[in-house]
Write a protein that binds this DNA or RNA. Structure first.
Lengths: 107, 107
DNA sequence: ATGACACATAGCCATATAGGTATGAGTATG
DNA sequence: CATACTCATACCTATATGGCTATGTGTCAT
């Protein structure tokens, strides 16, 4: 159940890797060489980070001749939004409970 | 700027640590011993995970006699929601651009 | 005061991981 | 066909990290 979250948060925990993901969110389809500029690391490192992001379901790749285009995976973002919403929800529920408790105490 | 995100994603990347945070979101104020049951690790490990979560701004602690109560930090969740929203926003913007492009091409 | 309890820190170890260079596999181009 | 190019993999190394046990610090209870 939470293995998906494990992989996603793990993948996003590294700044370099999260930077790549953010660029893919901003710029869409991009090749490895395209991502290389500004990444601050070597090409093999970029490739490996992309592999991690892919196995975490955060990006997809598409082959076109000798180029490989990577792009952010929309479903993954959805999963993240759901998780944060769930956590926020718990937080709000607790305050609702507190609210109810106070109301009951008030009577 | 993104050092906050670094610390947060890093803190949430470990399953044990994220489990603790989720419990704090669900159950609110809890002591270390309270969190210990079901954590699957020793008390010192729990304490260290909580320290990491705290320095990432994800939880706060409150001392009461010999007890220390930890609780989830609402602002941190907000930061996460903002980040995921921003990423989703980029994604949508790109599709708006594509949409505009297709419209222009259509004329 | 003494013992029990709650929690944090220190020190240790095994493993994971991010980075590098070298190289391989596949594709376009002259 | 030979060369250049794109990308991935293999391999190595240094460091980070998560787990443990032992112990320290502070607080409550008897």
């Amino acid at each position: 159940m939470s293995e998906i979250h494990d992989a996603m948060f793990r993948a996003l925990s590294d700044p370099t890797r999260r930077g790549l993901f953010e660029r893919l969110c901003r710029e869409g389809d991009t090749t490895v060489v395209g991502l290389l500029s500004g990444a601050g690391v070597s090409q093999p490192v970029v490739s490996r980070h992309l592999k991690v992001l892919k196995s975490a379901g955060l990006v997809r790749d598409r082959h076109e001749g000798r180029y490989t285009y990577y792009s952010a995976e929309r479903a993954a973002l959805r999963t993240l939004v759901d998780w944060t919403s769930e956590m926020s929800g718990f937080w709000n529920d607790r305050f609702d409970d507190l609210d109810n408790l106070l109301r009951r105490m008030d009577q």
